[in-house]
Design a protein around this nucleic acid. Structure first.
Length: 489
RNA sequence: CGGGGUAUGGCCCAGUCCGGUUAAGGCGCCUGCUUUGGGAGCAGGAGACCGCAAGUUCGAAUCUUGCUACCCCGACCA
């Protein structure tokens, strides 16, 4: 079995690609830039979906579904929105194929659509066209809707999970009667994302707003969570947009106030995608494979029997049955790997590659002593534990692992966050990776120049942070606050 | 869209410069026996219109021309 990974040190992006493929998460498909998400990878997405979906429902949202296809004319209604997405839209122009005289399948030119359809890169336009019909009065507000969907963005260069031509995500779209309420919603949802990233994925994130250059096409303000990967590059893990009345005006969505006045509706939208799986991988995993936090791991505990012959396996299986019941009673997902086609060593390596947080091994010696060997994925430590009360012990261990994974990522981020005050230092620091906190004069021009010279962009402008007088790292103009620069994915 | 590269069993690849008849090897797969506390060993076996199309030649994976696909680097991006 040649499942050796490239090491992170040797080639970080090769390591990432190897890992995604070898851990059976996803693979490239016949269509350039589009991936097949394999069952194990999809199981991780399902865990994420289920937690997020619950969080959305708890904050008052409902799921709905809007169409994949968007009439081209909808797109032109919001100027900056078109500008942002026009270059990466897939377009449907025909609706029929036929056989030509050589028997080849060709597009039937007679079946041209009257109006071309855009495959959604995001759904603001079709949703706001719909909301016009839904919203008449202040009594219809707020509208708090989310959808789980696929979207298509025809990217030049793609990478499994991090950037694919088609990806899965959720997009929340809300409509409010006041600016304050919409702002509150946008902030609330970025907070939900931050909680999810930190408490479930174990990925610490910076929360804040985007600079105008990085803002969503059509938004007044973009809130985001930003995580730091092990190679020192930043990854935008989730965004929440305050859209003001831009879409309401573009799609003429007005409501009547209590005072019987016509007003435009205030909007937000927010989303996270399968890119989170990329974040999860790059935040925690090591040269042995994936490291999954227990709260997101499809399998939390794997049990590997060590046996010679059928009788021994049966004996061990009996013991394992008890353990499985005990773990399941505590809602721990457990897999008993009783394949007789592979040796224990092979299984150890394979489950490590797949990031299962806890592995139990039971052999004849354990049966004799009433013990089980417990190995944790995050630290690779092994110890022998008495089987008595094993459910509770594992439960506690999973909590510890979840916490340890987060703490480790947090201290990595702290060790790789720098305050920098001179341009020379800025250049060399950015080159080495990490979050670089520096003063910026607040202009787009300066941000662009910095990007051209260093490839670093402003990842996030922190909110809820004390202001600090300073001088822009590039122009020397005055600045009231440090912003976070980094090279990013 | 610019620049560079690659295309050979499921995967990784040798062979291509200098054409020669069973296209080599490793991984994986199948069968059997022995193994099983950190990626097993031995024996046997299956599996390839050498990216596609023309051409040169007695003979093409190898030479020529055209095409296609994919990868890497840049511009663009959740």
């Amino acid at each position: 079995m040649a499942k050796q990974l490239t090491s992170r040190k040797e080639n970080y992006s090769q390591w990432y690609n190897d890992l995604v493929v070898k851990a059976d998460l996803a693979e490239n498909s016949a269509v350039r830039g589009s991936m097949v998400i394999k069952p194990y990878g999809y199981a991780i997405w399902e865990k994420m979906q289920s937690v997020l979906d619950t969080m959305f429902k708890e904050t008052g949202h409902q799921n709905a579904y809007f169409p994949l296809f968007i009439p081209k004319s909808f797109f032109s209604k919001e100027a900056s929105h078109v500008e942002g997405f026009a270059k990466e839209c897939a377009v449907v122009t025909h609706y029929r194929l036929k056989n030509d005289k050589d028997g080849n399948i060709v597009v039937d030119e007679d079946a041209k659509l009257e109006e071309e359809l855009i495959v959604r890169p995001t759904s603001e336009t079709i949703i706001w066209d719909t909301y016009r019909k839904w919203i008449q009065s202040y009594r219809d507000l707020p509208v708090l809707v989310n959808q789980w969907a696929n979207v298509v963005r025809w990217e030049m260069r793609t990478r499994l999970f991090l950037r694919t031509a088609e990806f899965l995500w959720q997009e929340g779209h809300t409509a409010h009667s006041t600016e304050a309420e919409a702002l509150e919603e946008a902030e609330k949802m970025v907070g939900v994302y931050a909680d999810f990233a930190e408490q479930f994925m174990g990925v610490p994130v910076l929360q804040g707003i985007k600079s105008p250059n990085e803002r969503f096409a059509g938004a007044i303000e973009t809130y985001c969570i930003e995580a730091l990967m092990q190679d020192g590059k930043a990854l935008q893990a989730g965004t929440s947009h305050f859209l003001g009345q831009n879409f309401a005006k573009a799609f003429d969505v007005k409501y009547v106030t209590r005072e019987n006045k016509q007003e435009y509706v205030w909007a937000t939208s927010w989303g996270v995608s399968t890119r989170l799986i990329g974040a999860l991988i790059m935040a925690h995993s090591d040269d042995n494979g994936l490291v999954l936090p227990p709260k997101i791991a499809p399998i939390q505990v794997v049990i590997v029997p060590i046996f010679k012959g059928k009788e021994q396996l049966e004996l061990i299986s009996e013991k394992v049955d008890g353990i499985v019941k005990e773990l399941k009673a505590r809602n721990i997902s457990v897999k008993f790997d009783d394949r007789d086609t592979h040796k224990p060593g092979f299984k150890f390596a394979e489950w490590e590659l797949k990031g299962v947080p806890v592995r139990l091994a039971i052999g004849p010696r354990d049966i004799e002593n009433g013990t089980v060997e417990v190995a944790r994925r995050d630290t690779l430590e092994k110890e022998s534990l008495q089987i008595t009360n094993i459910g509770e012990k594992i439960d506690n261990l999973l909590v510890q692992i979840q916490d340890n994974i987060f703490q480790k990522a947090l201290s990595y981020r702290e060790d790789n966050t720098y305050n920098v005050d001179t341009w020379d230092e800025f250049k060399s620091r950015v080159e080495k990776g990490g979050f670089v906190r520096a003063h910026w004069d607040g202009t787009s021009e300066t941000e662009k120049l910095i990007k051209d010279k260093t490839k670093a962009t402003i990842r996030v402008i922190p909110i809820d942070e004390p202001l600090e007088e300073g001088k822009c790292i590039f122009t020397g103009n005055s600045s009231k606050q440090r912003v976070v620069f980094a090279k990013s994915y």
